[in-house]
Design a protein around this nucleic acid. Structure first.
Lengths: 280, 280
DNA sequence: GAGTGGTCTAGACCACTCA
DNA sequence: GAGTGGTCTAGACCACTCA
């Protein structure tokens, strides 16, 4: 989360200490500065207080001090814990909420975002039916294989060629027709105990399963889209003839620290569906 | 910009007035409340102060009081103008900067965002070459036609069938090969004086031209993607054979007030290019 | 009524730009 | 050195939730 940069070291912190003459402890702030310095190797670094707080909150999320779906301490409590003002905590929490790591509910508290509790079954899916209701899509598992990852897949996951992986295959369907066929590749190292039964227990909602069963929370995904002709097994899985134009989506899913943990290729029949995107 | 909602009317504003007993004018705040009330028809409305300020700033952008590329008044000046604190102005400006209507530069000022000054030639384009440098793409104009808008296009632009429109056709190319063929439809009502020469004077950078020549600033776009087989003229324009799989992008471009002002269909050859997307 | 997040203020000082 | 946006504080009160 913490961006490494070329921030100049200056006296701001020493001066910062002198703001407060009411005898309150300032050790925590000093410690934060030291943490940040060791975090950024190449040269001295400066980060505003609220980013340091943001980093500390993220650490607590990664370590599991606060788990998905649970509430984190109130802003006042966090302000005390880190010895900063509530406004500074707010700014840190706001950025984490913008990144969808946290969810705020006025009057109730701030919660760790969770794929299990979100109403959307497929949080990052941009495929929509051309007409009809928003979420009629459901997933059905085809099979699960233990494989050796090829060079390209292994590299994309930060592993070496031949590392053990899982290959999950499934269909996305609106009703009878299959809208998409998907191949998902995962490193066995992080998803040891995957099986067909555990996937079906989670209704084939993979991100929710990663989180609940393996403690791996997906934060964002990156996709590359191409148009390609259907061939062989893919064509038959989607019940289209060879040469039929498909939308092929290559997705990499990332967890904390921008670490890639899942590869996914989706072959979509866009005869009655489309991929929706809004660009700011 | 202003979201209509079911905010409860309460006494917050009356109490708010009593915060300040230093004799400063509060008429402007009161006027703001009245403006907001008339803006939202269905029932009484309440919006926090910073959103009301945001709305007033947006009005000044729409009216052209501050033009693209120019700086707007400093936060202190705006705070005086609206009789609120600098923090409240900051919050309004922050939201507008997040929406990319404004751009902040520390030490220099806050500027109205402009497509003419942005370094990216195609601000909303997600097509990238699979390998090679980031921005080798360039556009070349094919032709410009004056047409009657068909029912569907007219409806998408909020016009009636048969309304006058422009049809602009162009190619996007990396080097020799054409990566995409595009058809752009515009209402004549808002783009009266379009011609080949004016487009070429702007290097075929359309959004920049809309802004500079017609005062229409595009704020965001919505896209629907499908895979489709190349046919007839499109195939020949892209030098591919009939049946070649193309990525077809239907885009609607919006200006202030979420008003659609441009339709665009792009046919992309994704043999050596892809559509990139990051989802949070 | 107590506790949560949300808004707003006034004031201080920092980082950066430019003349 | 003056002016800009950026950070941080302390304190007040509002909107909302829940018991």
């Amino acid at each position: 989360m913490l961006k490494k940069g070329s921030f100049r070291v200056n006296n701001s912190y020493i001066r910062h200490k002198t703001y407060h003459t009411d005898g309150r402890c300032r050790f925590i702030s000093l410690r934060i500065v030291r943490v940040m310095k060791t975090q950024t190797e190449n040269g001295p670094a400066y980060q505003p207080l609220y980013r340091q707080i943001k980093y500390l909150i993220t650490e607590s999320l990664v370590s599991g001090e606060w788990r998905p779906g649970e509430s984190i301490p109130s802003e006042v409590e966090l302000a005390n814990r880190y010895s900063v003002s509530q406004g500074t905590v707010r700014k840190a929490v706001t950025e984490l909420a913008d990144q969808k790591l946290l969810v705020r509910h006025q009057g109730k508290g701030t919660f760790v975002a969770s794929h299990s509790e979100e109403r959307t079954k497929f949080p990052f899916l941009r495929i929509r039916p051309d007409r009809g209701d928003v979420e009629s899509l459901s997933a059905s598992l085809l099979d699960v294989w233990r494989i050796k990852l090829d060079k390209e897949s292994a590299a994309a996951l930060g592993l070496t060629e031949g590392a053990s992986g899982w290959l999950i295959r499934r269909l996305l369907s609106p009703a009878g027709e299959a809208a998409a066929y998907e191949e998902i590749r995962l490193p066995v190292s992080q998803f040891e105990a995957i099986s067909e039964s555990i996937i079906e227990k989670h209704d084939c909602m993979l991100y929710s399963m990663y989180e609940a069963a393996f403690g791996v929370r997906i934060l964002f995904v990156e996709e590359r889209l191409k148009a390609q002709q259907a061939e062989g097994e893919v064509a038959s899985k989607l019940s289209v003839s060879a040469g039929f134009p498909l939308l092929v989506i290559d997705r990499v899913s990332y967890t904390y620290g921008e670490r890639p943990v899942e590869l996914r290729r989706s072959y979509c029949n866009t005869a009655e569906h489309h991929y929706r995107n809004r660009i700011l």
